[in-house]
Simulated scan of single mutants.
Amino acid sequence: MELKKTPLYDEHIKLGGKVVDYAGWALPVQYAGIMKEHKAVRSKAGIFDVTHMGEIIVKGKEALEYLQHIFTNDLSKLKKQQIMYTFMCYPDGGVVDDLLVYKIDEDEYMLVPNAANTDKDFKWMIDNKEGYNIILENVSEKIGEVALQGPLAEKILSELTEEDLSEIKPFYFKKDILVADTECLVSRTGYTGEDGFEIYTSLEGIKKVWNSILEVGEKYGVAPAGLGCRDTLRFEAGLPLYGHEISETISPLEGDQKFFVKLDKEDFIGKEALVKQNENLKRKVVGFELKGRGVPREEYEVYKNGNKIGHVTTGYFSPTLKKNIGMALIDSSEAKLGNEIEILIRKKPVKAEIINKRFYKR
């Protein structure tokens, strides 16, 4: 099957991007190298092609009631031009997807799901819209998106727009603003632990936005950044990744994301199962630091006193902290800060300590 390409595919090739298959898309995993790109985002800024992310529009008088029914977070708290992170769950509490909800108007919302889940999410939403007077539209094929992340992001983007970007607070957005003479929606969320912006525009306009940011950013040391460092950055910031810390079989509560699950709001899909699970949570995602040698990897087994208590969900050598760290889903009875566990690396148990999984704070 031929891979889908974003409008920036040729730019990635020109820049020496190493293109891989990511959820059916041809996307750069790295350019100059994951470590270099990671450091550029932490110290200056990096730009990511995230056109593969989905966009779904929900419109209609009952849009809010419908979204309250399918999401775990309380969207009644959302103001116009504000963004909320939430989960969409199955009746058993497993996760369909984690996504962002943009409130465009009282009866219009834009959802941004994970690329690999967009079609599945859209089908799930259609299957659960009965009885709601709403219109659902998957507009993913029409929208280009880049993310500019890092401490210099505002400075760089300010050179390409008349808009006062300091007015866009974290988890807010502005519509219909010009960036590099291109009409865009600009939001401020980020998936790296740094400040940063997402710039959405037409497929025709995204190339101009990308190239203009790289041009202006050259004097600031902006680097094009690939999927590889996107993962190491989100991981250091303790942010979950679908299929790792949350999944069809790992609930948001088990993924240690209870803040985004409002068990006291009116009924939503999965509520009953999550309320029950919350009373007796058997597993939980924790952070850990390796005390011995080796790099923890996904699916490595976790032990305590010779008993298997779970598995690693993500593990890396942290480029910022210069330590071998990871996240693991383990028995909640062992999920205490300071607790000593063992990670099985090449059939040898290596000592590790449970620590706060927000490994990096800017």
Rank of each mutant, 00 (worst) to 15 (best):
H69R: 10
F235G: 02
L233S: 00
L214E: 02
Q68P: 04
R293P: 13
K175C: 06
L241G: 05
D119Y: 12
M1C: 03
E183Y: 06
L99T: 13
P349T: 07
T189E: 04
Y172D: 05
V146C: 01
K61E: 13
H244K: 12
G54Q: 08
Y132K: 08
H244C: 07
E2R: 06
E215M: 01
L75D: 04
V302D: 00
V96W: 04
E266T: 00
I104P: 05
K175Y: 03
E137A: 14
G46V: 00
G315Y: 02
F235P: 10
I345S: 11
I309R: 01
L64S: 11
F87Y: 08
E215H: 05
G150D: 11
K155A: 00
R188E: 03
D119S: 15
P28N: 02
L64C: 04
I168R: 07
W124K: 07
L111Y: 07
L214K: 08
L160Q: 14
G16C: 07
Y220G: 00
D264C: 01
C89F: 09
R230L: 12
D21P: 15
E162A: 12
K14C: 10
D181N: 15
G190W: 00
V216S: 12
I354A: 05
K80Y: 10
A32F: 03
T6V: 06
K208M: 01
A153Y: 06
F317I: 11
T72F: 00
V222A: 09
Q30H: 07
D121L: 14
K262D: 15
L64E: 13
V29E: 13
I177V: 15
G315W: 00
N307W: 12
L263C: 05
M53F: 15
K103I: 00
F260E: 09
E183W: 08
E137T: 14
A237W: 10
E204I: 07
K276P: 11
I168Q: 02
Y90C: 01
Y109R: 12
F71P: 02
T249H: 14
E198M: 03
R362V: 03
A115N: 11
N211D: 06
V285T: 10
L203I: 12
S166H: 11
Y90N: 03
L337I: 11
I104L: 11
A23F: 13
I104M: 15
E154T: 00
N280F: 15
I70C: 06
P224E: 13
L233Y: 14
A180V: 01
L160A: 05
G144N: 05
K291V: 03
K348Y: 09
E106D: 15
V139C: 05
E279H: 14
K304R: 03
D10P: 01
G326I: 09
L152A: 02
S158H: 03
R230W: 05
G238P: 08
E154D: 05
Q277L: 15
K14Y: 06
R42L: 13
A237D: 03
K322A: 04
T192G: 01
S187V: 03
A223M: 11
L157V: 02
Y132H: 10
H12L: 06
E289G: 09
E254D: 12
D176H: 13
K123D: 14
A328C: 01
K80N: 15
D97K: 04
T249Y: 14
L157A: 08
V209M: 02
T51I: 01
L111N: 08
E298Y: 06
E204M: 03
Y102S: 08
E204Y: 07
I325T: 13
K357S: 06
I34W: 02
L8S: 04
